[in-house]
Amino acid sequence: MIELMHVTKSYGNKLAVDDLNLSIRGGEMFAFLGPNGAGKTTTIKMLCGLLFPTVGTVRIAGFDIATHGQEARQRISYVPDTPFLYEKLTGREVLNFIADMYHMPGEKAKRRIDEMIELFNLYLFVDDLTQNYSHGMRQRTVFAAALLHEPDVLIVDEPTVGLDPRSIRLLKDTLRNETKRGATVFLSTHSLDIAQELSDRIGIITQGRLIGCGTLDELRKQAEMHGNLEEVFLILTEEEGPATPVPDSSESVAVSAGS
């Protein structure tokens, strides 16, 4: 469902992602781990077509994101670490807009919106303007919007930051249900316990290079130890040395705009 073939991305003369090869099948939950500035967000933005690979090809559901971006994006939902919501729309209006955006038929859209409101417990605030939402309310609305059109690929960047335990539980259940439905979940996170608990496979990236990829047992073998994911992660990333921070795209906009 997701294929990255020899993908390299450079910012000026600095490599952010270096010859990344990855294939993730349908219905798989893939956790993408790495230290700050390792190239996770850059990879995610290439998956969504926001950034172009300097070298290599990205395919989503068989569509090359560079040449058939619109078809690929029709099958993706992307939840960034700081999601965007129209402040002057209510939660329900946001969901209606997303349904129209993905060309959902009227009846189906209405049914799915009701389902999402129920699933994420949006009843109490779905008709308020989103500018009044707390972080947790925003995050639940964003997930409702992301899952509304039943995407084939769900790309999630740091979904649990700032959420209370109940919301994290809800999120974990939702992600599991998505994979059961057959969707591919690409989860970028620093939360190693969530990655260990949920994912089928784990990829570890540092300094732009994928240094480990497989099930937890396979990573343990690679690290030559039997600890939990945290210990495996620390050993594997330690061998590579500390990463040189690479700004994400929004950061680099600000960087290059200054003097």
Binding site: Y11, G12, V246, V253, V255, S256
Partner: peptide
């Protein structure tokens, strides 16, 4: 996003 200098 990627054409400017990495770190200034």
């Amino acid at each position: 996003a990627s054409g400017g200098t990495l770190r200034k």
